[in-house]
């Protein structure tokens, strides 16, 4: 329950930002950061709690984005419905890829590789298929009405993505407090031992992947609706696979708040890099990559791990290093 209260508190604080006369630039920054946090929370469900490291979450992000955009533009489907169908399509792609890979017993390196390959296939298909607008991309018509899921005010968009992030936090909380979550972390820690205790590992991983894909797809749907333009490189590009993973790992994989704080930090770093060096492409990603390596090397439990260490240091003035050391 304390965690749930924390979620309410964090979301409430973030929800108050538009009332502080924050500039559009600040809101825009936060919208993008929250969008990445949402994609990252998707990755976290599978990678953080389930230990299955996907290098291809772009497959879900892009599917969400394209389904939302194409249904509206080509088939005149209502934007709200298109958004929901985008999430469902992302979940479906996740379920299909999951069923194929987990049934074949792919783990570790192979799982990373095969998810990456699926994302790349989708990117190439999207860059040539007429229905996606091929190389030109897809443009959603500007139509600032609530029915079209577009808003005059950036603040409304901001609250919308914040609402989705809040939902994803609650999902993570629910995972931590459910049988499904216990099974999922058991599979992450030791798949054979989990199976011996009655866990249907394949089904649990498949469930996690479907949920994970749905969450990341929601981020893609939102992207399409916010920027009103996507192409293959944006929707299915490696950038989103990397950022989804990065925010979760840097924030703390397998924690509720890891992806959110990770995304805020990573995006702040990127913004700082841009301020210092002008808008030179590449530098922000160099910093992201370096942050990833540094976190793996020196803070394997990410930001949340650092926070936990600090807190326990305060609680116990004379910390005993024994448990950590023996855990090695």
């Amino acid at each position: 329950m304390r965690r749930l209260a924390m979620i309410v508190l964090v979301v409430a604080v973030l929800a108050a930002v538009p009332f502080t006369e924050a500039s559009n630039a600040v809101l825009n920054f936060l919208v993008v950061a929250l969008l990445i946090a949402l994609a990252g929370q998707g990755w976290n469900v599978l990678g953080g709690y389930g230990g299955q490291y996907s290098f291809g979450h772009a497959a879900f992000f892009g599917t969400g984005a394209y389904v939302t955009a194409v249904l509206q533009v080509r088939y005149g489907v209502n934007a709200w419905l298109a958004f929901a169908l985008g999430i469902a399509a992302g979940a479906l792609v996740g379920a299909v890829i999951g069923a194929l890979t987990f049934r074949s017993g792919l783990r570790g390196s192979y799982f990373a590789l095969v998810t990456l390959a699926f994302a790349e296939v989708l990117r190439i298909v999207a860059s040539v298929a007429p229905i996606t607008g091929a190389g030109v991309g897809t443009l959603i018509k500007l139509d600032l009405r609530h029915e079209a899921l577009q808003f005059q005010s950036r603040a409304v968009f901001y609250w919308a993505i914040l609402g989705l992030v809040a939902l994803s936090l609650v999902i993570a909380w629910a995972i931590e407090h459910s049988r499904f979550g216990a099974w999922l972390t058991a599979v992450r820690e030791n798949e054979d031992a989990a199976r011996a205790l009655g866990v249907d590992a394949t089904r649990v991983k498949l469930g996690a992947m479907t949920l994970s894909a749905a969450i990341t797809a929601a981020a893609g749907c939102f992207y399409a609706q916010y920027f009103l333009f996507i192409d293959a490189g944006i929707a299915y590009g490696p950038w989103i696979s990397v950022e989804a993973l990065l925010t979760a790992i840097i924030g703390g994989a397998g924690t509720i708040f890891g992806p959110l704080f990770g995304a805020l930090l990573v995006r702040l770093l990127g913004e700082a890099a841009r301020l210092v060096t002008g808008d030179a492409p590449g530098l922000d990603l160099v910093i992201y990559g370096a942050a990833l390596v540094l976190v793996v090397a020196f803070a394997p439990r990410g930001l949340m791990g650092i926070v936990a260490d600090i807190r326990s240091a305060f609680r116990r003035p004379a910390p005993r290093p024994t448990a950590e050391a023996a855990g090695g």
């Binding site: 993973l245 370096a290 990833l292 390596v293």
Partner: peptide, 25 residues
């Protein structure tokens, strides 16, 4: 990587991002 395979994956991915974007920069 501290001898963990999953970490090794992440580190090589991080290096890829660094090298590619340093070249881009």
């Amino acid at each position: 990587s501290h001898g963990d395979d999953r970490n090794m994956l992440l580190v090589t991915l991080g290096l890829a991002v660094i090298i590619e974007n340093a070249l881009l920069y």
